[in-house]
Design a protein around this nucleic acid. Sequence first.
DNA 1: TAGCTCGTTGGACAA
DNA 2: TTTGTCCAACGAGCT
Length: 482
Amino acid sequence: MTLGIVWFRQDLRLSDNAALHAALHDCERVLPVFIADDRDGTVSEIGAASRVWLHASLNALENDLKEAGSTLLVLSGDPLKLLPRLAKTLEADGVYWNRSYDPVTCERDKSVKEALHSIGANSYLANLLFEPVKTLKADGTPYRVFTPYWKNLMGSLPGEKPLAAPKNIPSPTPQWLGKQLKNTIAVDSIDELKLQPAHDWGEVMMAHWSVGEKAAQKRLKDFLKSDVQSYKVDRDIPSMTGTSMLSPHLHFGEISPRQIISATFNKRKSVFDLSPGEETFVKEVVWREFAHNLIYQFPHTVDSPLDERFNQFPWASKYDDSLKAWQQGNTGIPIVDAGMRQLYATGWMHNRVRMVVASFLIKNLLIPWQEGERWFRHTLVDADVASNAMGWQWAAGSGADAAPFFRVFNPVLQGEKFDKEGAYVRHWVPELESVANKFVHKPWELPREERDALDYAKPLVDLKKSRQAALDAFAEIKTAKS
DNA sequence: TAGCTCGTTGGACAA
DNA sequence: TTTGTCCAACGAGCT
């Protein structure tokens, strides 16, 4: 009997899973494996919020595998040692996985592939629409600007149809597996990975979400049914559920970008046949693609600016207190605090507000964007190395296709424009419950008595002065050599 | 090759 | 209250 090992990583799904599909095609039996890797992005480096999601997602995957007549083998340690040992012990005929593109994973996978050369390592494209190494400009160099990138890829959409989930996954019996692995490899359970936090905040956070492949498919279906047509406008209103909320599902691979594109196109053949809402949504999926391309082509941009002039940027010299106030949602700027509190409570923040809080951290507080990137990585359930780095560098003006340096978001105007009635701000900052609309985004302008009665932080900085300070700081590096 | 256009998400200020 | 203009200038991408 031939045996294929399928190594699950950031592709916690059965449908449109190229590696699983190939293993089932090649081998008589298939063994699904998850390895909690202590060294890298798989487990130890990821943030607390993502760990909680991963815990739930692994449970969902295990259930789905059971329904298909299989199991999930959970191990922890170094895949570079574990996979060859496992393959040898079980006399496997091949190891299968879907590729990821961040620098740490790329490096590790290369070594794993070498270590498995005598057994056979097979990797597949399944977590992106297009292979980054093939998506280049006519002159062979990578894209740095989104619009030409989009124009290039647009014609290739929707592309191939996603693969259906296998109904039956013939697998080794637990008894046989236990016998083979006895005294050679220690098997864990999902609970033993200790992904759950010691306190109960994880439960509170997860009350906002449904996790797993089935939940992801339902979310997509609901979004396409009710929200996608008004997406172009509603996605900018933080108090509405105008966005797809698919980001954490995509991050853990509970759903594939191909499935999203295919369902959105729904038998239509070209981008030109889509409605404005649908096209904007598809574009967002391609932005994710762009982020993964950038991280693959410029791996150092995970924590260093793409525009090297920013290495000389005169950041604030001491910022412990202001960073803490930002993280805890106590800056005294309503929309910033609302966003930061939403993030901490739910593991997610509305995209419009992400831009506002990022601009505030970088340009009003002059705190290095890497600090914000780190906090987002720790607290977001959708924390994704590629998207996070691209987003923060975009806000800082140091990345690909970045906002110009003089573009500083004014949190008051952003609030008044996108949260007119103050519904979002009042929801997350209940101290402002009774403040009139006129002042809800700038409570410091309230009449003295009313302002003093308010139990809410005074603004950390003067918006006008700090904006000017940022412009002056940017002027310093403008002419610096890149 | 040279020249042209354009760049996801904005704000301040003047009229 | 709304609307137009400027902010600074560079390099990516295209013809």
